[in-house]
């Protein structure tokens, strides 16, 4: 059974300047122990999707479509119940996610007391064990320290310890390493992979970094302007991308092995989602756009398990 199923999820935000459709009928699923990456640029709807799964959308948001956790429909009440227990999260900025007034150990222990009903003493012992497990050196001493006494990488480890303390079915990681230095980022992502393998937790990894996707995802959803542009197993997506947006995005990222004569440049800017263009939302920036692109392309299966929402796919 899938750990998570998202079925035709739509999200709208009511703003002073009209209704903004952040996410438009997206669907995907994640199996236990697997990582699904949602990749896209600012405003593509990836973070709104994460918040919708967690039931943490702002007051002015409306949501349509079904979200299922291990087959159970997630109502707002069910989300409240599951959050922190079966449904865990880590965010980009560990400093703002941790409570500055409690020690690292207390914050991990709180999750265990709340969700597993452990006594304060047992909870603290388990918390220290958890901090060891996320490879915090001298865990017993660090457990007594406050967030401001820890480095950025260490804080993110504490967040991971809190998130995984109750063995969740699903972990939503929204840009978990974007605020960290590259050597620390590599440590944290390797740690997440290892813990995922051990616990069978499914991971939804939200990122803008294609390199991170390439190294750590099993399956990828590429989002553009609130819709799924392409969905495929990771290896397949990088070997044979089919949606022009994915193709452009891969060409826009600089490479380490050689200097490109010029980076691929996707001209123009993302559309205003209060007034999106009709048809394919990428068409105004797409060098391959033709007349039919004025109609919305369905997400078609181009090859087994490889879907693209493009009238022109497969591109040869």
């Amino acid at each position: 059974m899938n750990a998570l199923e998202v079925d035709r999820l739509s999200i709208e935000f009511r703003t002073d300047r009209g209704v903004l459709q952040a996410v438009d009928r997206i669907s995907f699923a994640v199996e236990p122990g697997r990582t699904l990456a949602i990749v896209g640029e600012s405003g593509c709807g990836k973070s709104a999707t994460a918040l919708a799964i967690l039931g943490l959308l702002a007051e002015n948001a409306g949501r349509l479509g079904d979200i299922r956790l291990a087959g159970e429909l997630l109502t707002p009440e069910a989300q409240r119940q599951a959050r922190g227990r079966e449904l865990a999260m880590i965010f980009q900025e560990p400093m703002t996610s941790l409570n500055p007034a409690f020690t690292a150990g207390e914050q991990v222990a709180e999750a265990l007391r709340l969700h597993e009903g452990l006594s304060p003493r047992d909870a603290m012992a388990r918390a220290v064990a958890m901090l060891e497990r996320v490879r915090i050196p001298e865990a017993a001493r660090r457990a007594k320290q406050y967030p401001h006494q820890l480095s950025g990488g260490m804080r993110q480890r504490v967040m991971i310890a809190i998130a995984l303390a109750c063995r969740p079915r699903l972990l939503i990681a929204d840009e978990p390493t974007t605020a960290l230095d590259v050597t620390v980022q590599a440590q944290i992502l390797a740690l997440l992979d290892e813990l995922k393998r051990e616990t069978g937790t499914a991971v939804v990894l939200i990122t803008h970094d294609l390199g991170v996707v390439q190294d750590h995802a099993d399956e990828v959803v590429v989002m553009y302007a609130g819709r799924v542009a392409e969905r495929a197993p990771a290896a397949r997506l990088f070997a044979e991308p089919q949606h022009p947006y994915t193709i452009g995005l891969l060409g826009a990222a600089p490479r380490l092995d050689s200097k490109r004569p010029r980076l691929a440049s996707i001209e123009g800017t993302v559309p205003d989602l209060r007034d999106p263009p009709p048809g394919c939302r990428f068409a105004p920036r797409c060098p391959f756009a033709i007349e039919v692109c004025a109609t919305t392309p369905p997400l078609r299966e181009i090859a087994p398990l490889h879907f693209a929402a493009c009238h022109r796919a497969p591109l040869a």
Binding site: E41, H208, G251, A253, P254, R262, L263, S265, E267, T269
Partner: peptide, 10 residues
């Protein structure tokens, strides 16, 4: 963002 970054790098 990556695509805009590419424009400015160019």
């Amino acid at each position: 963002d990556v695509s805009v970054q590419a424009q400015v790098v160019n």
